[in-house]
Structure formats: C-alpha cells, structure tokens
Design a protein around this nucleic acid. Structure first.
Lengths: 335, 335
DNA sequence: ATGAAAGCGCTAACAC
DNA sequence: GTGTTAGCGCTTTCAT
C-alpha cells in the first residue's frame, strides 16, 4: 500500500503527459505565441487530466507579475464597512478588472496597527498595482507612490505627479450654489467640509466663486467634518448667528441631513424657510425628510475609471491624468 | 549621464554589501537560526542602506508559503458591506492574525461572476489558507475544501470532516424559549429561519426541545428567511391564525423587528400582549422599539476562533473541531 | 513551430 | 557559525 504523493502537478508533468517540451506546454497555457494544433490539444488534454494549475509564485518570479491589484483604503475596517462610499468604490474597481484575469484585493487598516501593514503588503510584491481610496493622508500617498509600482488615486492625493481621478468639486459646488440662487434664495451660507481636505477646500471655493459671479458675498461659512453631528453643529451655529440665511449649500449629504435637524431645532422648515443643497447623492439623500437636492458623486465611476487607468499603466501606457468627472444636480425636495 | 537602474536590490546585493554569504544574509533576515553578532549587524545595516525587501514570489516558491490567508465570503459585495455580520467577522479574523506577519485578505463574490473567481484566487496559491464565512452553499464548501490547503469555516458547512466554529444554535434557542416560559408566557410560537439552512433548523430544534421538556407543544411555527420583511410576514401569518400566542421566539433580530411591526398591525403591544425574544444581539436589537431581548451571537469571536484554528493548521497542528461557542441571553425590553 | 538551457530570488540541506 | 550548492516551477531567449 503506497501513499499517494499529494504534490500538485507541475508544468513538467503536463509536458511529459502531452509529449511535448515544457516550453511548448507553457506557450499553450499562456496563449499569445503560435503553437501547432496537435500540440495545443495534447497540452490542453493533459492540463485537464492532471488538474494542472500554474504556480503563481514561480510565474511571478520570472514575469514579475502576480495577477492581482489591490484597493488600498487607509481607513479602519469599521469605517470602510459603514460608509457606502467605499463599498461603491470597491464595486467600481471590481468592474474595471472583470474579464482581465486580474484579481482585485481589498486592504484596509487595522484600528490599532494603522497603515503600516497595508504598506508592507503592497511593497512586498503581493499586488502589481494599487488603487488608493483616501480622503486624506498625504504621507500615505507618498509612501505608496514610492513603491515603484503603478498606483492611481481616487480623489486628489495632494501630491504632485500622481495619477488620480476626481470630481470637479468646485464646479459642482458652484452648480449647487447657482441652483439655490435660481430658486430665489436671498442670503446664502455654506457648511463646508474640513479645511485640511482637498474636497472641503474645493467645494468652498466653488461656492464662493459662484457667489462672487452673482455679485454676492460668500462669507457666511461654518466648517463641518463630513459627519451628521458635525453638520448639525455647524449649521446650528451658522443659522443661530445669521437667521437671515435662507439658502444653505452643505458640502455632504450626511452633514445636510444634520443641518435639517439643526433647522428643526431652530424652528425653521425645509425648504419653506430654508433651502438646502447637499453633496454626494448618497443613500441619506433619499432617506432624509425632506429628500435632499444634491450634487451627484459616483464613487463607483471614480474607482472604475481609476481601475481602467491602472490597467493602462500595467500595460505600459501612460493614461491621461488627472481625470475629472462631471457632477450633475439632482433635484429633490430640499431646494 | 547614466540611467539609474531601478532594479530592486536582491539578497545577493545585501550579502555582498555586508561581506557575508547569501545564506547568512537569509538567516539574519528570517531570524530563527543563530548568527554571529557582527554578521547580523552588517546584514541589518546593508538591508537598511539598500532598502532591501524580500521578494515574496521567490520566497514562496521555495517555502510554499505566501504569508497571507484569505477570508472567503461567497456573498455579493453588496451584502457583505451592508450586513454587519460580515464586517464584524472580518474584524475577528484580523485579530487572530495580528502580530503574526500574516496578511488577511478579503474576497467576496461578484454579483455577475459568482464564486468562481474566488475559488480561482484561492486555488492559485495566493493564500496559504482560508476562513470561509457562509451561511449556505455546500458546493462552495466542498470546492474550497478540495483545494488541499487548510480551511476553517465559520458556521457549520454541512460537509462532514471540515473544521468549523459555530454557536450552539439549539441550546441558545432553548435558552430563549425557557426565558419566555419563565416570564409567564402561556402559548409559545416561533418564527424560524429558512429550513434549508443549518442555523434555521437547529434553532427550531432547540425551541421544540425546550417546549417538550416543559411539557408543552412546539407546533406553532412559521418559516421566515432571516429578513425584516420575511419575519414580518411570517409573524403576521402566525399571529393571525393563532391569536392565543403570547410569546414568540424569533430566530433573528431582523425578523424579530419585523415581528414587532406585524404585532403592531394586529393591534398587539410588545411586550404587554406579546413577548418576543430574538437572536443575534445585533444592532437592530437596540434600535428597535421596544429594544429586543435576544441571544448573543458574536461573529467576531467566531471568526477570531476560526483564525486561531487556521493558524494552528498552518503550523502543522490539528485543532479540535468543531468549536462550539456558548451564547448568552441578553435581556432587554421585549421579554 | 519546437526544444534546450538559462535564470528569476530565495531557502534549505549539507559540509565544514 | 558560515559558505557552497542544489533546486522551487516557471518563462524566455536562442537555436534549430
């Protein structure tokens, strides 16, 4: 009674079974190079019979390709799982690599360990390239970019020379602002995102630009942090000090929904006493009461585009960068 | 002006720079084997100076270890991201591998492509082992188990011989049932999970067992599907036909919260007219009104335990299996 | 179109 | 404690 060796079949086994050389077997398996019909069929048959699977480590050693890319999200898994932005983005990344045979891994940071393990993973040749989805973290962006592997960012990483995809925050904010004006709002204010984030700064800039163009002043601002609570607090503050405000551009839907609560606490009705435009067109936009008029923001499209760019880079081409996606106004009930 | 070669430094470069052999350099880098102080320091210095990083492909080729495990979730990414069970489980898996130097990847299925890419990924040596989190899918369990790599399941996979971690569904259900009885409920019913799922069947069994032990009949049952809507429908049906029911064991919190709605529609108050015990102690348990009395279920613990078992397997040991975790009653307002 | 042979970067006997 | 050597399984020139 002999113990069956449980060693996986190698390319050598396949070649032998097919009666060809290892080189020919390799050619059949990888396509591309022309191989004669009989040889091709013999190899295919041998592969099927032996249940052969190429050893990716051996292959990677020579091709320097592992056949996988990674979506790096320098946020704790708790945030990644709770914020729909990331899941939608991951979905988009997946789309970009469908039918390419390239796996799309997902890596987020551990609450205690921070981003180091993510970096280590990426720098250790586990992936051929990365899509980084981050709203902040310049250091991380730099570190990732230094890996000498192709990387594309979703959202302006704030580091010159890096490829990225983003929406035109300023333009979108201006559109939102003009919508409020066209609806007859007399005094506009804005609840901004954090001023240390690109998106926060740009959305404010767009608001102020549109106001200036309309001959108005855009000085009524309060800084939020993109959370519900932060939005509520900022809006409450702004509206308390400036009860004359009848139109508010809020730089995210979540904050806008907090702003609705603030307005309620101050006895003001939306949109009757106060018109509101949010940003993101996320789920809360349709869940809040009233439903939010907002600027569309498509994380799936952003990530899909980033994926396509990454694919180009992997193929040795240099995609245009940055790619700036348009954002359209979605009119609902809040303005 | 010469172009700087951008080839990553190899172990050879390190060895040369340190004035030792490649083998010694390797020993220093991997620890374990004793190396003299001077040699150790020379190598460390060389590594730092050159920015050397081991090539995982080359290493994997000889060690047959890639330094990563994968959490396989045969559900669409949409479900994975929206159901807190999975995020909590992933968190637990991460915990198990902290400080081991082993990366924990996450792989879910694409809505269009199904589970094949996941399988392909795992079977192609991208990971040394897997934790499978699935509530169903015997075929998938079999396929994964056939990969000849260590695998541990979270939840009984229903295939004999496979290692898994689970809660004692029947025991927990019995505890829930006895709680209802001890609170004075006279006529008990249960809304079950799907009968093609292990958890569904077992929780029903526990209910009936406890009823039998108390000399009661456990025939008042209605099958749900673990969703809110399914729970509401099943409860509505059961309560309409059997208005005498004053105690209900509902096999998941989500369904229990649906059952509350059903009770409301029938003009019955919880817990006044109807006592309710759920299962999972998930977020909805505290969000529903009234808050749910429920059986604890800890996906993070399940996955962490599975991770520890996987780690043992990777180290050549055979962990006890199955591991059945206890579940305790969490008393809140619904019973 | 095909085979022989070199070598990717690393670890693990094995000798000393 | 250290160096030498032999591969791990694969792709890829280079001949033919």
């Amino acid at each position: 009674m002999q113990v069956t060796e449980r060693t996986a079949p190698t390319l050598d086994d396949v070649a032998r079974a097919a009666g060809v050389s290892r080189a020919t077997a390799s050619r059949v398996i990888n396509g591309a190079v022309p191989v004669s019909r009989p040889a091709t069929e013999a190899v295919r048959k041998a592969v099927a019979m032996l249940g052969y699977r190429p050893n990716v480590a051996a292959r990677a050693l020579v091709t320097r390709r592992v056949g996988a890319v990674v979506v790096l999200v320098p946020e704790t898994e708790e945030r990644v799982f709770s914020d729909p932005f990331f899941s939608r983005a991951y979905h988009g990344a997946l789309e970009a690599f469908r039918h390419t045979g390239i796996h799309v891994l997902l890596s987020m940071s551990h609450p205690h360990d921070g981003v180091d393990p993510m970096l280590a993973f990426f720098q250790s040749d586990h992936a051929d390239g990365a899509i980084v989805i981050s709203h902040h973290g310049y250091d991380f962006a730099r570190a990732v970019a230094n890996s000498n592997r192709p990387v594309v960012f979703v959202g302006n990483p704030g580091v010159p020379g890096l490829a990225y995809v983003d929406v035109d925050h300023a333009r979108a904010a201006a559109t939102a602002t003009r919508h409020l004006l066209s609806r007859g709002a007399q005094t506009l204010g804005t609840v901004t995102g954090p001023m240390d984030m690109f998106a926060g700064v740009e959305r404010l800039r767009g608001f102020q630009q549109a106001m200036a163009q309309a001959g108005r002043s855009g000085h009524l601002t309060a800084e939020g942090d993109f959370t519900f609570a932060g939005g509520e607090a900022a809006a409450f503050d702004l509206l308390s000090h400036h009860p004359e405000i009848d139109g508010l551009f809020v730089a995210s839907d979540l904050m806008a929904s907090g702003a609705i609560r603030a307005a309620e606490r101050l006895g003001r009705r939306v949109p009757g006493d106060l018109m509101l435009v949010g940003f993101d067109d996320s789920l809360v936009a349709t869940q809040s009461i009233p439903q939010l008029t907002t600027m569309e923001n498509r994380p799936d499209l952003l990530a899909r585009t980033a994926g396509q760019m990454l694919l180009e880079k992997l193929n040795g081409r240099q995609p245009e960068s940055p790619v700036i996606l348009p954002s359209r106004l979605v009119v609902r009930d809040s303005a």
